[in-house]
Design a protein around this nucleic acid. Sequence first.
DNA 1: GTGAAAGCGCTAACAG
DNA 2: CTGTTAGCGCTTTCAC
Lengths: 334, 334
Amino acid sequence: MSSSGRTTIYDVAREAGVAASTVSRALSNPRRVNAVTREHVLKVAERLGYRPDPLATALQTGHKATVAMLIPDITNPHFFGAIRGAERRASEADVTFILSNTEESAANEENQIDRLSRSVDGFVLAASRMSDATTAALAREHNLALVNREIDGLPSAVVDSGPGSRQIVEHLASLKHRSLVYLSGPHQSWLAGQRWKALRAAAEQHGVRATRLGPFSPKVDGGGVAADAALVSGATAFVAHNDLLAMGVLRRLAERGVAVPDQVSVVGYDDIFGADLCVPALTTLSGPEDEAGRTAVELLLRKGSLSTAHPAPQRVVLPVHLVIRDSTGPAPDR
Amino acid sequence: MSSSGRTTIYDVAREAGVAASTVSRALSNPRRVNAVTREHVLKVAERLGYRPDPLATALQTGHKATVAMLIPDITNPHFFGAIRGAERRASEADVTFILSNTEESAANEENQIDRLSRSVDGFVLAASRMSDATTAALAREHNLALVNREIDGLPSAVVDSGPGSRQIVEHLASLKHRSLVYLSGPHQSWLAGQRWKALRAAAEQHGVRATRLGPFSPKVDGGGVAADAALVSGATAFVAHNDLLAMGVLRRLAERGVAVPDQVSVVGYDDIFGADLCVPALTTLSGPEDEAGRTAVELLLRKGSLSTAHPAPQRVVLPVHLVIRDSTGPAPDR
DNA sequence: GTGAAAGCGCTAACAG
DNA sequence: CTGTTAGCGCTTTCAC
């Protein structure tokens, strides 16, 4: 064993009576080595407990077998699904998974990318706060894949809020609601924009009046203000930007003695953990967030591999469905 | 810029008219370089957009500025706090954070440690499933810190279930409960053992009869069986191994028409997200899980730094407190 | 099919 | 204080 204490390729080479390059080949390029010597080398490596050093390999080859995922707020249950899916996919591919919190700041995202760029093969950007232009520029230097965000020319995996929002409106319209209010999330949030757009379009189509309020902090705490604002709007259905906000709204409505769903209906997005445990259980749009995370990693890895010539970067859209629980019901009689 | 496309220390050196080693020193060991040349070098580096390559640095110095956290089940909200805290601390120290799911398997933990050992400075093991012996053996080769697990000679950060369990018993005893049942978690779980031990001791002290059932799957789904088993036990207070299980128990009790807290009281551990949103809101032991994660990283980093001679590895115990909500009440009259 | 040698980008003696 | 040199552990030409 070399002086450093860990077994290197040279230790194996010496012990096996071959050159280091042969060991290297035997390990990574088996067909370029005589079958017998290969077996022998492998056996010696095994016996010596040899483990390749990923850093040295990466330094030489540029292939790091590592991806990083950037999350605006690691605290937000909204992202747990995507994180989970991404980690799983990475792990399946024997790719190391780096998780980084960007604290809802675009500048922070840029910093992290800068900091990590030499250590990873690519980045998964979840609900990125950066502008299209900045992101596109970064994509020229780095390997990027987006989750719940679409930018021309970049690979992405999004949970499809369009049809989903339509489902929400149809559900509400069928319950005779004539007006809804969208309680929107952060202004920079691409998702919030998409959801509102789809909601409004569907509402118009179904003769439902739709208005938007906010932005609100997309957390349980934001629900207080949001609920109060929604109540004065006079709408009978409240569509919250996400479940966290919806839960906060439910709580505030309970405090104020407003009956759900008898007086107002409440809908969320995401179907996060707890959405079925709160009371009333939340009607919400359930999307395969974990699939989105998984797919983004997939796209990253696929782009990295030199297997085939690759066509246009992929844009994957994942289907959603509305889960109807107890927070929505017939519109109250006037 | 060198052929590879990225700016290296040599590019900076050439451009600044100094040797590469001088650039290296100017960047990492500023006081060993003339102030004027240092300024000059820094300026050139800035202008060329130089970014050090962490891999090359690590290969040379052995210092990777990276830690990995191993989690039995990334899906389980129980761990979110610890993950969050650990990520935060790492990020503050400019240390890259690797997250790895071990799927509740000790073998998997060993594999990951093996796989990652060359790439990281140390590991945070959360609620490790490995035996004391195995862990201690690994600790001789690797830099380890434990979360919610204690092993002689290893640094650890645990949320203190002892006093916490006592608080639970005192609370229940004061409500005139004469018997409680502990719905235990996975058998390999060190935490489950600790909790039961403390619970039993406190119960004895307060003249409360304590029995243990299980193990149950510590998830919402596990609550069904657990609730049914608990009901036949005849106890008036159910203490679940964690909030997830407690929530499942609440749900099952509601299904069966058992009134909480009128007929039975339910207590959980962890105070996870949602514990205050379910109905009835869950009485639970709240511990600073994020502090535990944060502290474990802290211990890892401290051990790594060569600053001072280090005494015995630290064992940090974090205080907990019982959050009384609506799932506990006076014992029913007989 | 295998060995010798160069080099990935950086740091750390050792001279000067 | 600064330049030269020698690697860290691995892969990859280029000869043989």
